[in-house]
Design a protein around this nucleic acid. Structure first.
Lengths: 120, 120
DNA sequence: ATTACATTTCGCCATATGACCAAATATAGG
DNA sequence: CCTATATTTGGTCATATGGCGAAATGTAAT
C-alpha cells in the first residue's frame, strides 16, 4: 500500500504529471524540463526526486548531466501501471499535446546554451 | 486536465483510496465507512465530497440515508479509468483485503444501531 | 410542533506541500 | 588548484490539507 500511495501522491501535482508525460518514451535533462515548465530549477529537481522515489521515473548520469526517463514499462511495478493509465488519458489531452509540441521545440535548442542560461 | 487532476488529487489520500475500494461493487452509508476507517463522521463526509466532486463515486438518498458507491464503470470517464487501475492493484493488496473482511463484518451489524451509536 | 436521526458544513489547528532563492555538491576542463 | 557547469539540497514562506468537535441541515416519526 505504501508503494501505491507513493505513486498516487506523486501524481497529485500537475507539474509532476506534465513531467511524467514529457519523459515518456525519451530521456530529458533537468534544464529541458525547467524550460518546459517554467519553474525554478530547484523546484523541478525536487519534483523529479519525488517521481524517482515513487518509481515513476528512472535516471542516469553522464558526467555533469543527469537524464530522466519514464520507468521501464516492462518492470512489473504498481507505479508504472498507474502511469500507463495516466499516459493513455493524456494522449487525448489538449494541454498534454501542447506540451509535446513545445518539447519538440526545446529539443531543437542547444542544450548547453539552454542550461547555461538557466544557471546565471 | 482539470478533471484528470481532480481525480488524481482525490486519490492522493489513503483513506479516500480505502473508501473507493470499499464502495466498489456495492453501496454503503456514511456510518459504515466511519466504522471501517475509524475517523470522525465529518471527516468521512468531507472525503466523500471530494471523491464525488472528482466523479469517483456516486450517491443516492433514501430519506435520511445517503448511499455511496463507485461511479458507474460504463461511463466513459477519466476518473473511472484511473480508479479501475487502482482497484485492480488493490485486489492483490493485503491491507485492502483486510478492509474487505472487516467490511463483511460491518455489513452484518445492524445499520440503525451502528449509526445511532456514532451520533451520540 | 417537538424529538430523533443521518449527514453535511463550518471553524480551528497542526502538519504537509509547492514555489522560490541561495548554498552545497558533483563533475569536467585547463 | 581554480573556474565552469548541471544539479541537488536546505531553508523560508504562503497556501493547502486532513483531522476533530460543534453546529447546521435535511428527513422521518409522533
Amino acid at each position: 500500500m505504501r508503494r501505491l500511495m507513493a505513486a498516487l501522491k506523486a501524481l497529485a501535482d500537475e507539474n509532476r504529471v506534465r513531467i511524467l508525460w514529457a519523459v515518456e518514451g525519451r530521456e530529458l535533462s533537468v534544464c529541458q524540463l525547467v524550460e518546459l515548465l517554467g519553474l525554478a530549477q530547484s523546484t523541478v529537481s525536487k519534483h523529479l526526486a519525488i517521481l524517482h522515489q515513487a518509481r515513476l521515473v528512472e535516471c542516469r548520469k553522464e558526467g555533469r548531466w543527469v537524464y530522466y526517463r519514464a520507468a521501464d514499462a516492462n518492470s512489473p511495478n504498481e507505479a508504472r501501471e498507474i502511469a500507463a493509465t495516466v499516459s493513455r488519458l493524456l494522449a487525448a489531452n489538449r494541454e498534454a499535446s501542447e506540451d509535446s509540441k513545445r518539447m519538440e521545440q526545446i529539443l531543437k535548442m542547444d542544450r548547453n546554451q539552454l542550461c547555461r542560461k538557466q544557471n546565471q
